[in-house]
Simulated assay, not measured.
Amino acid sequence: MDLLLDIDNIDYKKTALNVQDFLDHKLPHILRLANESPASLKSPVISDMPVSHGNGENHNEEKLIKYIAAKEMINGVARAFKSCSKTSFQILKGKYIDGLQDWQVEQLMYCSHATYFKLRSRAYNEFADCFELQKGCRDLHVYDRMVKSY
């Protein structure tokens, strides 16, 4: 695996859209599965709860596994948020923890509309970088099919 080749092939616009889709549409569902609110994204929780990898015959066991996976992903989101730069964290916190609209976050940051959306795109890409390294979390980057060589 060539890390630099992977980095060179990231489509940053599509990655930002993919992260936005994940945070806007999938994360609320994951929060519901774990019986959590967006406030739980403020800080990750260490859980001593055991993870069972059963063969799927027990319905309650499947529910427990889904619940634990959702909790693990929520912790991954929280850790990824905290690993982002201060500006990116401020944007992500405003939108996904505090529940603010883009225009409200833009006003809190005292920046122009165009600047805010550039910063938001950067925040989404930073989140993708940090999220893929968290336990139980997948890579949200979108890669170009064209391979660049030097």
Rank of each mutant, 00 (worst) to 15 (best):
N55A: 03
Q20T: 12
M146S: 08
R145L: 13
K42R: 14
N125K: 06
V45W: 15
A16T: 10
L108E: 10
C111I: 15
N9Q: 15
C137T: 09
D21A: 09
D8I: 02
V51N: 06
A69E: 08
G136P: 06
L100C: 04
D139Q: 11
Q134C: 11
Q101E: 11
E106K: 15
V77S: 03
Y116P: 10
Q101S: 10
K63C: 00
G56H: 03
P28A: 11
M49L: 12
G56E: 01
L17N: 06
E132M: 13
Q134Y: 04
K86R: 14
L27S: 08
V105C: 06
P44D: 12
L119D: 02
L64P: 04
D21M: 01
Y110Q: 15
A16Q: 01
L17F: 13
S85F: 08
A78S: 15
I10A: 05
L92N: 02
H59V: 07
K93Q: 12
K93D: 14
C130L: 03
K66V: 04
K148C: 02
D11Q: 10
A78E: 12
C111S: 13
D21H: 01
K95R: 15
N125P: 07
L100N: 06
K71E: 07
L64T: 02
M73Q: 13
E36H: 06
I91C: 11
I65W: 06
I74Q: 07
N60W: 11
D48N: 14
Y143I: 12
F117P: 01
Y143D: 03
L5M: 13
S52Y: 04
I7K: 11
L23G: 06
H25Y: 04
D8N: 13
L64C: 05
I46Y: 15
G94T: 09
A80P: 10
L17D: 06
Q20M: 11
M109R: 14
W103N: 09
F131Y: 15
A123M: 03
Q107M: 08
H59D: 05
K118Q: 15
N55Q: 04
Q90V: 05
G99Q: 02
L92C: 05
I7W: 01
M49A: 13
D139P: 01
D139W: 01
L140G: 02
L31P: 04
D8M: 07
I10T: 01
N9P: 03
D6V: 00
F131E: 09
A80Q: 09
Q20P: 01
Y67I: 02
A114Q: 12
K63M: 05
S121F: 08
K118F: 01
P44Y: 13
E72T: 13
A70K: 00
N125G: 00
Y150D: 10
T115G: 09
R79G: 08
H59G: 07
S83G: 12
S43E: 15
N58Y: 07
E132N: 00
K86S: 15
S37L: 08
L140P: 01
L119G: 10
V19S: 03
K118P: 09
P28D: 02
H59K: 03
H29N: 07
V142T: 11
K63F: 05
P50E: 01
P38E: 05
V19I: 14
S85N: 10
A114C: 00
I10R: 12
F127A: 03
S43D: 13
L23C: 00
L33Q: 10
L100E: 06
Q104Y: 03
C130Y: 10
